[in-house]
């Protein structure tokens, strides 16, 4: 089967300053359906730039990018918007939910812009609700983002990313703003989705978070320096159990719940 993401020797050069910045210098990458990839690297390694190109938010200066068999390198702005809408799901570090808008309405948002599907308001609501159920927030559908914890907000964002049944879910440091426990919970949601066959690419600079993924890519100075499968990956439900026991031991919570 053809890879979902097929990148050949892409470059990104920022010309905005006096000196052109060569952020990505020739990355080639295939990501197949059902993969769970972590992009890692220090600040300035080009991982965010690569992520933006993967997400069709930014165009490569050079090289080709095929997403689900479609060459997106020379699509115009609106065609890229449609690709983002139909084939990609986004999860951002800062959640990027619309303020003063209920969780449900936030999740409905991508379906309002869908070009190919014509769904009724009822169908849209139903699908959004279904995605909230997947991330375990069905009972919070009417809450505003400011009434939700960081982890819950990120789960709403994940539900929003899922709602148009994307080929790839892209997550840019999804745990960057979360504490370790909530991070594990969010990674649990990702693992669960991945188990259902959804391909996920995420950027992180935390090793232990990357350890929940199946494949780790390490970037340095705009090139991939390491690309390996994670041998013994962490399973979120196990880790959460461990954490709970540890917290119970430290009297942080009342009693370990099994």
């Amino acid at each position: 089967m053809a890879p979902v993401v097929q990148i050949k020797d892409i470059h990104k050069i920022y010309e905005s300053g006096e000196i052109p910045v060569h952020a990505v210098r020739g990355v080639s990458l295939d990501i197949h359906k059902g993969e769970f990839v972590a992009l890692m690297g220090a600040s300035g390694s080009g991982k965010s730039t690569l992520m933006n190109m993967l997400g069709c938010l930014d165009r490569p200066t050079k090289g080709t990018y095929k997403l689900d068999g479609i060459d997106v390198s020379d699509l115009d702005k609106n065609e890229l918007a449609d690709i983002r809408n139909q084939k990609l799901g986004f999860v951002f570090q800062g959640f990027n939910l619309l303020a003063r808008t209920t969780a449900l309405e936030n999740v409905e948002l991508p379906m309002l812009y869908g070009r190919h599907r014509r769904l009724s308001a009822g169908q849209i609501r139903e699908r959004a609700m279904h995605c909230l159920e997947i991330v375990g927030l069905a009972n919070r559908a009417d809450h505003m983002p400011n009434q939700l914890s960081g982890g819950q907000q990120q789960r709403v964002a994940i539900a929003r990313g899922l709602v148009n049944e994307p080929q790839v879910l892209l997550a840019d440091e999804p745990t960057g703003n979360l504490d370790s426990r909530t991070s594990i919970e969010v990674m649990g949601v990702f693992q669960q989705l991945n188990d259902q066959g959804i391909s996920i690419v995420m950027v992180t600079h935390e090793l232990d978070i990357a350890h929940y993924c199946k494949r780790n890519l390490i970037l340095r100075d705009g090139v991939v320096v390491r690309d390996e499968a994670v041998p013994n990956r962490s399973i979120a439900s196990n880790e959460l159990g461990k954490l709970k026991s540890a917290e119970a031991a430290a009297k942080l919570i009342a009693n370990p719940v099994n």
Binding site: N78, D82, R84, F90, Y113
Partner: peptide, 16 residues
């Protein structure tokens, strides 16, 4: 502007 960014990122055309 951020709201506009979110809408664009998840697939809104600028016309929308």
């Amino acid at each position: 502007t951020r709201e506009i960014g979110i809408r664009l990122a998840i697939g809104a055309h600028d016309r929308d």
